[in-house]
């Protein structure tokens, strides 16, 4: 049989961007430890709806840890206390009977609250739009095996590319910096021959957009990588800095 626990939740409720938010307390009984954190919130919402109250709003979609839609700042950690998982893959077995769990939205100037635990992350799309691509139109590409790419470089590019754009790095950073996110994309392309052509231009454009959108500076605390659900490495930031300096030297 499933093991169950009773918990107390302190959840940030905020009606819209401009409204003043506050914590509300909810008690939940008999939560299966095999359920995921979001399934626990589903149970809470079902309970609230049955009581005629408005459910807690939070972002989620694939519930497989890959879409990057879910967020939540749980007991002081983006995506909660477990390592290398998103909130949707965090399970209640990581908590104990009687625990008080505090749930907040991502808190960053770059991610304004939409409602409750849902935030606006369109700033990330804008950073990608600034240069997070290789400028090739569809059609006319050469054969995929025409250029050989060392396995090591391809694997490393893949590790950088595994960023899911959830924003945990920003939420974890005391400066609200988006450097890990930006550097992961810059690195992925800088590591591949097809991306080298625009490497300097890309680094410059993405960093400029990040600054413009109000994200903070990087002071190398490493909190971003420590909290990243996909374990995107700090070495990406080092590579971004190199690409950025190279770009500046060319100016």
């Amino acid at each position: 049989m499933d093991k169950t626990i009773d918990i107390t939740l302190k959840i940030w409720r905020q009606h819209d961007r401009k409204a003043k938010g506050a914590f509300e307390t909810y008690n939940l009984k008999g939560i299966s430890t095999d359920s995921s954190f979001l399934e626990m919130l589903d149970v809470l919402n079902e309970q609230l709806i049955n009581e005629g109250k408005e459910p807690v709003v939070f972002d989620h979609d694939c519930r497989e840890g890959i879409c990057g839609m879910c967020s939540l700042y749980i007991n002081g950690h983006p995506h909660g206390p477990d390592t290398a998982v998103t909130t949707c893959q965090l399970h209640m077995r990581k908590f104990h009977n009687g625990d008080v769990i505090t749930i907040e939205p991502w808190r960053s100037a770059g991610f304004p609250v939409i409602r409750d635990l849902m935030v606006d992350r369109t700033a990330f799309d804008q950073i990608i739009q600034a240069g997070g691509y290789i400028s090739v139109n569809c059609g006319g590409a050469q054969d995929a095996n025409a250029v050989r790419i060392p396995k090591k470089d391809a694997d490393e590019a893949m590790d950088s590319a595994s960023c899911i754009g959830c924003g945990a790095c920003v939420a974890a950073c005391k400066n609200g910096s988006a450097m890990l996110f930006v550097s992961a994309k810059v690195s992925q392309f800088a590591l591949l021959p097809q991306g080298r052509v625009e490497a300097a231009r890309r680094a410059r454009a993405m960093v400029a957009k990040m600054d413009e959108l109000g994200f903070g500076n990087c002071t190398n605390t490493g909190a971003c990588a420590a909290e990243c659900p996909k374990s995107v490495s700090l070495s990406n930031i080092a590579r971004l800095n190199r690409e950025f300096i190279k770009a500046k030297l060319k100016d």
Binding site: Y133, R148, K151, A161, Q194
Partner: peptide, 22 residues
């Protein structure tokens, strides 16, 4: 086949063998 060519050109990091081929 065009899809694979297009995706590689976009920088999709497909798995590769040690010789550098897909």
């Amino acid at each position: 086949n065009n899809i694979i060519d297009q995706c590689v050109a976009q920088g999709v990091p497909f798995a590769r063998e040690y010789g550098g081929l897909l």
